[in-house]
């Protein structure tokens, strides 16, 4: 399934760009581009912008890098574990935005969509063989 491999690699790359951007704006004084409602500033100023002292975006970078490498190596079990954890974490973060912080960060939502996409790409192909 060559097409699936490239699709996942593209998702991983796009995710890296988004979480990389959020990471850089988190650790530096560079401005974070944001919609008119200022939602991403609210989210990035909230206590959930870091978990255990590490910027949430750094976990995103780790996740997308692992996704990209597992995709390149076609490691099916890794892919299942990585995308499942990414999906669960995205659900949790989206829940925080909706019900706790009560503000939407468009970049974070985009990342959650990508993680969800990766999860379905990997899990909805039951007859794939491991290389």
């Amino acid at each position: 399934m060559i097409a699936r491999k490239y699709l996942l690699a593209t998702v991983a790359f796009a995710g890296l760009l988004i979480s990389g951007y959020l990471f850089i704006t988190h650790v530096s004084a560079l401005p974070l581009l944001c919609g008119d409602d200022g939602g991403c500033h609210i989210v990035q100023a909230s206590r959930f912008a870091s978990h255990f002292g590490i910027p949430t975006a750094a976990y995103g970078i780790l996740f997308y890098a692992a996704l990209g490498i597992a995709t390149a190596l076609e490691k099916k079990t890794w892919l299942k574990l990585i995308t499942a954890s990414g999906f669960i974490v995205s659900l949790y973060l989206t829940y925080l935005e909706a019900f706790v912080v009560e503000a939407w960060c468009q970049w974070c939502v985009a990342s959650a969509v990508l993680a969800t996409l990766a999860f379905f790409i990997v899990w909805l192909h039951p007859k794939q063989h491991d290389n």
Partner: peptide, 11 residues
């Protein structure tokens, strides 16, 4: 190799 290269370079 290309995918791994791109991912590692981006990180």
């Amino acid at each position: 190799k290309v995918i791994i290269g791109v991912i590692v370079a981006t990180v």
